[in-house]
Design a protein around this nucleic acid. Sequence first.
DNA 1: TAAGGTGTATTACTCGATTGATACATATTT
DNA 2: AAATATGTATCAATCGAGTAATACACCTTA
Lengths: 124, 124
Amino acid sequence: MKVNFNNRDPVYVQVVRHFKEQIATGTLEPGQEIPSRRELANKLKINPNTAQRAYKEMEEAGLIHTERNLPSKITRDEKVLGAVREELIEQAVDSFVTSIRSINVPLDEIVGLLQDKYQKESKE
Amino acid sequence: MKVNFNNRDPVYVQVVRHFKEQIATGTLEPGQEIPSRRELANKLKINPNTAQRAYKEMEEAGLIHTERNLPSKITRDEKVLGAVREELIEQAVDSFVTSIRSINVPLDEIVGLLQDKYQKESKE
DNA sequence: TAAGGTGTATTACTCGATTGATACATATTT
DNA sequence: AAATATGTATCAATCGAGTAATACACCTTA
């Protein structure tokens, strides 16, 4: 468990994003248990309330379930789980298309740039 | 002159972005005069200081030049002008690649989505 | 000369999101 | 029963970006 925090976005947003990525890539599986609020807070060196806020968002989005004091679990709802990946992708594509179109960049040029950068520079 | 403001980003950032887009697409030409701070503020219904801040950013970036009280002008420095387009594109591509890669989306799938959306939905 | 436009600097305020402190009920465990 | 861990709710504090108020020097022009 490791999250590369940036200084722009709120911590709780980045935590949610991180879980969504884990779900989208299958690293987190349906029904899998996740750390408690306080445990997560310890690992990530963040305030427990911040962890709670992230979990609350995910709970409301139906991504996780919590019963009493038992460990929260990733939902088994395939529909919800599938939508996570689609949502992340659509969001990225939409925002990208908006940016690019306002500069009138030909599609060919874009695809070329993407191919260059996609596999490359996985490092840093 | 019309800027579609959103509620996320600071106004002065959006103003700068707007000018950069105009430059990148050639709508604003080298040496062309731009409105005074107060005039722009009137048109866009924003505070004159906000306009000033946007112009200051552009001045520091070398995008515009200001002499005394004369109307500010778009720079004639071709190097700077060309870099604007490249910067906008690179920024968009980088951010997109980062998003997409963390979800492990195959490049083929991406290109398909892009082709669908790029020409489409110019409306809304 | 007076008036009105310009760019610019300094300062203050606002305002809201984000984070943190604290408390409470429940459940489990020892 | 006591202790500890859990989820949750409420409230307070912070804190900094963004915006605004104001003033000043300059120039042009009427």
